[in-house]
């Protein structure tokens, strides 16, 4: 379980996070939503120790993040994390060189699933294919937790469908996934848990299926209510 406890973050004078708390379980897809600029990416960065927080605590399976933790939790930002001059194969080799948890077989499987080729240069990839390679580099690791920042944003519909397909496949099975998005419409049926952020705090956190069952509302309905207030 990933536990985010009362974290705060200031950028200059701007208080971006004002005490954010939520948990994300293994085997579930948790979705952080909020209109742009509410600090979703900052939360991801904070979980990965890529940006310092001012107060609060983040625990992964009850422990603070250490360097070894990067073998069991990984982050797929919205920009590719490899050098443009590398080929996809180079990037995979880089992962293999540094991570014990790199699963070359799974990576190869993803490569063919996405219909990509190892000798393609990263700088030549389309936006959609760049997103797929980014996903491949994250999913190729045998990690327990996977964080993704806006995996569906700004890419073509077919890439989007392929990426959504990955979520329901064995490639994500039993992992804990946190994704951020500002566009939940397409993925309402894919997620377990929704955490709505606004103005630096969690305004509502609920189970998507639960809110449909108990209140007869869609996730978007709940968002609409929250933002109307």
């Amino acid at each position: 379980m990933i536990e985010v406890k009362e974290i705060t973050k200031k950028f200059g004078l701007k208080q971006v996070l004002k005490g954010v708390s939520f948990t994300a379980n293994k085997g579930e897809i948790t979705c952080l939503i909020g209109i742009n600029g509410v600090g979703k990416t900052t939360i991801m960065n904070a979980i990965m120790n890529l940006t310092p927080i001012n107060s609060g605590e983040i625990l992964i399976d009850g422990e603070k993040l250490r360097k070894e933790s990067y073998e069991k939790i990984t982050f797929i930002p919205d920009a590719i994390t490899m050098l443009p001059q590398m080929t996809i194969g180079d990037a995979m080799q880089f992962m293999k060189d540094f991570y014990k948890s790199w699963n070359q077989k799974r990576a190869a499987e993803l490569l063919s699933f996405f219909k990509l080729k190892e000798d393609e240069r990263i700088s030549n990839l389309s936006k959609g294919n760049t997103a797929k390679v980014n996903l491949l580099l994250g999913l190729g690791l045998d990690v327990d937790y996977l964080l993704m920042d806006e995996p569906f944003s700004g890419i073509d519909i077919f890439s989007r469908e392929q990426i959504a397909d990955v979520f329901t496949s064995h490639l994500v099975e039993d992992r804990g996934v946190i994704i951020t998005t500002h566009e939940i419409n397409d993925i309402e049926h894919l997620i377990d848990k929704v955490v709505i952020l606004d103005n630096g705090v969690v305004v509502k956190s609920f189970n998507a299926e639960g809110v449909r069952e108990n209140e007869g509302k869609s996730v978007v309905d709940v968002m609409r209510e929250v933002y109307k207030q």
Binding site: G27, A164, S169, H189, L190
Partner: peptide, 11 residues
């Protein structure tokens, strides 16, 4: 089933 219907596996 989850994959075919594009739904969450837990569902």
């Amino acid at each position: 089933l989850a994959n075919k219907l594009k739904i969450n596996p837990n569902t």
